[in-house]
Design a protein around this nucleic acid. Structure first.
Length: 618
RNA sequence: GGGGCGGUAGCUCAAUUGGUUAGAGUACCGGACUGUCGAUCCGGUGGUUGCGGGUUCGAGUCCCGUCCGCCUCGCCA
C-alpha cells in the first residue's frame, strides 16, 4: 500500500483558534485568531477603533490601536473601513480591558488587541441589522433575507434550543428502547382528513403520490413488523391554511410502542415532558392531572382547557328554564340547548359597557346570538338582563357563588355553540383582565374522547360520522365489545362510545395526541364501515393495513408531539415562524427562494401533467 | 372562500380637516475625536408614499380594483 502524498497547503488565514464567546481572563496573554461578523464599530479616529465581533457563540471586543506595538498603518486603515456585518478574521493577543470591563458580556473582562486583519468579506449595506436591540423589521423582509434574520442572537438561541430538544428526544427514547426509523415522504393518497399535497409519478401516467399528513400507518406497520418501539422526528404535510401556531409543513416527534395500554404510553410521554422541562428550563413538572373530555367540555367548553385561571363555565339551564326570557327559552327549546354562565370576579368594576358590548360581537363570530350580561351590586342585580333574572336571583347567586361586584356573562344556544363561544370568550376575558399568570406550566391529560363525531355537512350534505382522533384509534379496551355490538343507526349509542385516545395539553395548547390503536382486523373493518366506507373503499385505501392486522399484529399504541409548538412553548414565542428556520407565509410561499414557482412545459410533460389555470379576473 | 389590520427614505416610524418643497431616529457616505461598549459631535446622500385607476383646483390622506404580509372564521382524520 503506497502512502498518499497530498501537497501541503499553507494555513488558511481564517482558521480560528477560539470562538467569539469563549475568551475569559484565563486566556490573557494568549495569541488568538477569531472569525465572525462585525456587530458594531466604535471608531475614535486617529487610530483607535473598537469592533464587537460576533459569531453564534457570542461577542468579543477587538481593539485596533495605532499606539500598540505590532500593528501597521495599513491594517489600521483597513480596520477604519470595517462596517456592520462585514466578515473578518483577526489575529492578536488577549488582554484585560484597559477601559474597564463590560458587565453585559460574558467576554466583557477581556479584549483582543489586534495585530493583523487577515480576511475581510465586505458586505453591501444589509437590508436590516440582525440586532435584537433594534425594532424588528417587518416579517416580509425578515423572511426574504432569512440569513440575516437568523444571525440575530434570539433566532440563534431558538435554533440551538430546537437542536437540544431533538437531541434530548433521541436520547430519552433511545434509553427507553426506541429505534429511530424513517418512513416514506412519497406516500399514498388517503383523502380522509386534511387536504393533501400531491406529487405526480412519472412512470405511471395519471398516478400520484401524496405527502403524508403523518406517518401514522407506517408506524403501526412497524409494530406489526416486530420493531416494538419506534421513534421519528419527522416532517408532516397538511395543505390547509396556516395560523400563528400552524404551518402546512410541520414537524412531529412521532412514536409507537407494542404490547402497551393507555397508561404505559402516557407514562412514557410524561417522563419525556418532565425530562424536557427539567433539562431545558430547569422546571420540575409535577404528576400530570387527568380530565375526561366531557369534564373539559362542561367546565371549559373546549377539549384543551387552559387551567391557569378560573372563569369556568357553569350550567344554569335548570335555573334558566324557570323564567320567561326569550333568549333562554328559545335556546332551551332546541335539541341539546343549554344556558351556561361565566362568573367574572370583580367584573362590575373591571368590565366596561364598551367591553361587554364587544363581547356580544365577539361571540357572534362563533355562532352565538349574543352575550347577555348582568352585574351583582350592593343594590342587587343590575344592567343587562337584570330584570328578567330577578325571580331566579337567589339560585344564580348560589350556583355561581356570586359576590357583590361580580359580573356574569351568559351563553344560550346548543351545547356545541355555547361551548365554542364561551370557551373563546373565557380566553378573551382572561386576556382583557390580565388574569393569565406568567411562568405557569399547566400540563393536563385529556382522556376518554368520543370515538366518533357527527359531521352534519359531510357525506355530500347527508351528514356522516367522522373519527374524533383518527380511524385507527381503538375503542377504550372496556368498550370494544360494546362497539362491535353497536348498530350503525344507533346515534346515541355511537356518540357514547369512548376511545382509547389521549391528548397532552399545556396552558390551553394541544402539544401531543395519541391513542391505543386497533390491532384486530374485525374492529378496524367495523370502524371503516362506521365512517361510511364500503368494504371496497376501505380495501382500496387501507388493504395493506387490514392485511397486516391479519398476520400477527401486536397490541400497540403511540403518540405524536407537535415539535414546533413544543419549541414555541419552551422559547416563549407565539409565532411558529420563529421556531422554523425557513418557514412559509399564509399562501405557502417561501419568500427567500421564491417557492412555489413555475416549471417548464418539459417538466410537466415528463410527469403527464397540464396546467389548467383559472380564468383571469375581469 | 369570508372578516380585520398593515404597506411612506436601506430599516423603524411621523405627516393636523384633503393644502407650502413628505419629516425624525437609525443605517449609509464624508469630517472631528486615543478607551469606547446602543460611543459622541458636525455635515451630507437618500422618496414612483406597494401597484393601477378614479374623485378633486389640489391625494401619502378620500373612493374602486389589485398585489404582498400578518391576525382570524371556515378548514386542520
Amino acid at each position: 500500500m503506497s502512502t498518499p502524498s497530498a501537497p501541503t497547503l499553507a494555513p488558511s488565514p481564517y482558521r480560528r483558534s477560539h470562538t467569539c464567546g469563549e475568551l475569559r481572563d484565563a486566556h490573557v496573554g494568549q495569541a488568538v485568531t477569531l472569525c465572525g461578523w462585525v456587530n458594531s464599530y466604535r471608531d475614535h479616529g486617529t487610530g483607535l477603533i473598537f469592533i464587537d465581533l460576533r459569531d453564534r457563540f457570542g461577542l468579543t471586543q477587538l481593539v485596533f490601536n495605532r499606539e500598540d506595538s505590532g500593528i501597521d498603518h495599513e491594517t489600521i486603515e483597513r480596520a477604519d473601513k470595517l462596517r456592520n456585518e462585514d466578515v473578518v478574521a483577526v489575529s492578536g493577543v488577549v488582554r484585560v480591558r484597559t477601559g474597564g470591563e463590560n458587565p453585559k458580556l460574558p467576554t466583557g473582562k477581556i479584549e483582543v488587541v489586534v495585530k493583523s486583519l487577515n480576511f475581510v468579506n465586505k458586505t453591501e449595506n444589509p437590508p436590516f441589522l440582525p440586532d435584537d436591540m433594534l425594532a424588528l423589521p417587518n416579517e416580509e423582509l425578515r423572511l426574504k433575507h432569512r440569513y440575516v434574520d437568523l444571525r440575530r442572537p434570539k433566532m440563534q438561541s431558538i435554533l440551538s434550543l430546537r437542536h437540544r430538544v431533538t437531541k434530548l428526544t433521541r436520547d430519552y427514547f433511545d434509553e427507553n428502547g426506541f429505534l429511530e426509523i424513517e418512513t416514506p415522504i412519497l406516500y399514498k393518497s388517503t383523502p380522509e382528513g386534511a387536504r393533501e399535497f400531491l406529487v405526480p409519478n412519472r412512470h405511471v401516467p395519471g398516478s400520484w403520490y401524496a405527502l403524508p399528513q403523518s406517518p401514522q400507518v407506517f408506524k403501526q406497520i412497524l409494530m406489526v413488523s416486530g420493531c416494538d418501539r419506534y421513534l421519528q422526528v419527522c416532517r408532516c404535510f397538511r395543505d390547509e391554511d396556516p395560523r400563528a401556531d400552524r404551518q402546512a409543513e410541520f414537524s412531529q416527534i412521532d412514536l409507537e410502542m407494542s404490547f402497551v395500554q393507555r397508561d404505559d404510553v402516557m407514562a412514557m410521554m410524561e417522563g419525556f415532558a418532565r425530562r424536557l422541562w427539567k433539562q431545558v428550563l430547569n422546571v420540575d413538572v409535577p404528576p400530570i392531572q387527568r380530565m375526561t373530555y366531557k369534564e373539559a367540555m362542561d367546565r371549559f367548553g373546549i377539549d384543551r382547557p387552559d387551567t391557569r385561571f378560573g372563569l369556568e363555565l357553569v350550567d344554569v339551564s335548570d335555573i334558566a328554564k324557570k323564567i320567561d326570557f326569550g333568549v333562554f327559552t328559545s335556546a332551551l327549546a332546541q335539541k341539546k340547548g343549554v344556558v351556561k354562565a361565566i362568573r367574572v370576579p370583580g367584573g362590575a368594576e373591571k368590565l366596561t359597557r364598551k367591553m361587554t358590548d364587544g363581547y356580544t360581537e365577539f361571540v357572534k363570530g362563533f355562532g352565538a346570538g349574543g352575550c347577555p350580561v348582568v352585574k351583582l351590586t350592593a343594590n342587587g342585580l343590575e344592567t343587562g338582563i337584570a330584570k328578567f333574572l330577578e325571580p331566579i336571583k337567589a339560585e344564580l347567586i348560589e350556583r355561581l357563588g356570586l359576590q357583590v361586584g361580580d359580573t356574569v356573562l351568559f351563553g344560550a344556544d346548543t351545547y356545541s355553540v355555547v361551548c365554542k363561544a364561551l370557551a373563546e370568550l373565557r380566553l378573551k376575558v382572561a386576556k382583557d383582565l390580565n388574569m393569565i399568570p406568567e411562568g405557569k406550566w399547566n400540563f393536563l391529560w385529556v382522556i376518554d374522547f368520543p370515538m366518533f363525531e357527527w359531521d352534519k355537512d359531510g357525506g355530500g350534505g347527508k351528514g356522516r360520522w367522522i373519527a374524533t382522533h383518527h380511524p385507527f384509534t381503538s375503542p377504550r379496551h372496556d368498550q370494544i365489545e360494546k362497539f362491535m355490538a353497536t348498530d350503525f343507526g344507533d346515534t346515541d349509542g355511537i356518540e357514547a362510545l369512548r376511545s382509547a385516545g389521549y391528548d397532552l395539553v399545556l396552558n390551553g395548547s394541544e402539544i401531543a395526541g395519541g391513542s391505543i390503536r386497533i390491532h384486530d382486523q374485525a374492529v378496524q373493518t367495523r370502524v371503516f364501515r362506521m365512517l361510511g366506507m364500503t368494504e371496497e373503499q376501505a380495501r382500496a385505501k387501507f388493504s395493506f393495513l387490514l392485511e397486516a392486522l391479519k398476520f400477527g399484529a401486536p397490541p400497540h399504541g403511540g403518540v405524536a408531539f407537535g415539535l414546533d409548538r413544543l419549541i414555541m412553548h419552551l422559547a416563549g414565542t407565539d409565532n411558529i415562524r420563529d421556531v422554523i428556520a425557513f418557514p412559509k407565509t399564509q399562501i405557502g410561499a417561501d419568500l427567500m427562494t421564491g417557492a412555489p414557482s413555475q416549471v417548464t412545459e418539459d417538466q410537466l410533460k415528463d410527469v403527464h401533467v397540464r396546467n389548467v389555470l383559472p380564468a383571469p379576473k375581469a
